[in-house]
Structure formats: structure tokens, C-alpha cells
């Protein structure tokens, strides 16, 4: 599978991404429950553990024979296996900041800003070996609208997120 440099995203892909956000809400909700009984480190640690087991089960169920066909991208560099480190550090940082004066809403709002700034740079320069994409005017307008809406929701005190 190559990554087509299409200008206009497939609506099904956009819908999938939007639905993925719903999965995140469920995940945060369940992990919050674990954090309540244990702590943030325990919640993330056990979620990564049960997740590893679930991934092995899914891989076993969906196992296909197409081996050795790596497409145009070749072998993955070693650093590509280390995405989990970044995720683990995220957990530790947010465990600190939600207990600071920033609280949950400040942590979410600043995290949102960090994500957006990074994603703009990631697309602009094709960071970590992914395709370069230049944003269109509409993309930037959409960015403004989604950020404004998200900030409103965070400030309105919606507790699940």
C-alpha cells in the first residue's frame, strides 16, 4: 500500500478519524476508572499490558501469510519501534500537570495546542519519514474552527475529556 498524495481526503477516512476520537473518549473514561482505584501510572501501565495481550490475540486472529512484501518503504528503521516511549512519557507528564494549577482543563487545552503545532510541522516537513503535505486555506480555517470549538467544550467543563 502506498500513501497516495491526494489533495482532497476521502470522506470515509475523515469519518474514521472522527470515530477514532470517540474511541479515545471511551479509553480515557475506562483508564480514568483505573486511575481512580490506583493512580495514573498504574492505569497507563495496566492499559499497556492488557493492550499488548489484546494486540497479540488480534494479530493471531487476523494472521495473514503475505510475508516479505514490505512495499516501497522497505524495512522499518529501529526508531520506528519506539513510539511507545513517547506515549509513556506523555502519561508521566500529564500525571504531573493535572495535579498542578493547570488542572485537567489546562492540561487538555495546552496539549491540544502542542498537538496542533507539531502536526503542522510534521506535515510541512514530512517528519519521521511520512509524506509532506502542504495545508490549503480551508484546512487552516477548519483548524481554527475545531480548535475554537474544542476550547469552548474544555472550558464548559465537560468532564469526560
Amino acid at each position: 500500500m502506498t500513501a497516495p498524495a491526494i489533495h482532497r481526503p476521502n470522506p470515509l477516512h475523515l469519518l474514521a478519524a472522527f470515530g477514532t476520537g470517540g474511541l479515545l473518549t471511551l479509553m480515557v473514561h475506562f483508564n480514568g476508572e483505573l486511575g481512580l482505584h490506583g493512580n495514573a501510572l498504574f492505569a497507563s501501565w495496566s492499559a499497556h499490558g492488557t493492550g499488548t495481550v489484546a494486540a497479540i490475540v488480534l494479530l493471531g486472529l487476523l494472521h495473514r501469510r503475505s510475508r516479505g512484501d514490505r512495499g516501497p518503504y522497505g524495512r522499518a528503521p529501529l526508531w520506528a519501534y519506539l513510539g511507545g516511549i513517547s506515549g509513556a512519557v506523555t502519561v508521566m507528564l500529564t500525571a504531573i500537570t493535572v495535579n498542578s494549577p493547570l488542572a485537567l482543563s489546562g492540561t487538555l487545552a495546552l496539549g491540544l495546542a502542542g498537538q496542533v503545532v507539531f502536526s503542522l510541522a510534521a506535515d510541512r516537513w514530512g517528519l519521521f519519514g511520512l509524506p509532506v503535505r502542504r495545508p490549503r486555506m480551508n484546512d487552516l480555517a477548519a483548524l481554527g474552527l475545531i480548535l475554537a470549538g474544542s476550547t469552548l467544550i474544555i472550558l464548559s467543563g465537560a468532564g469526560a475529556i
Binding site: 500513501a3 497516495p4 481526503p9 476521502n10 477516512h13 475523515l14 478519524a17 472522527f18 470515530g19 477514532t20 476520537g21 470517540g22 479515545l24 473518549t25 471511551l26 480515557v28 491540544l112 498537538q115 496542533v116 507539531f118 502536526s119 503542522l120 510534521a122 506535515d123 517528519l127 511520512l130 509524506p131 503535505r133 495545508p135 484546512d139 477548519a142 483548524l143 475545531i146 470549538g149 474544542s150 467544550i153 474544555i154 465537560a158 469526560a160 475529556i161
Partner: peptide
């Protein structure tokens, strides 16, 4: 790789907020 980093981040955030 299909819709880019900005679109992925924004739509996941949007979906998270609305479902929240």
C-alpha cells in the same frame, strides 16, 4: 499516511470532544 498529521489530529480531537 493517508490524510496527514493535521487532519488526523484535528478530526480525532473533534471526535473526542463531541463524543465527550
Amino acid at each position: 499516511p493517508r490524510i496527514g498529521a493535521v487532519n488526523t489530529a484535528l478530526l480525532v480531537i473533534g471526535g473526542q470532544m463531541v463524543s465527550g
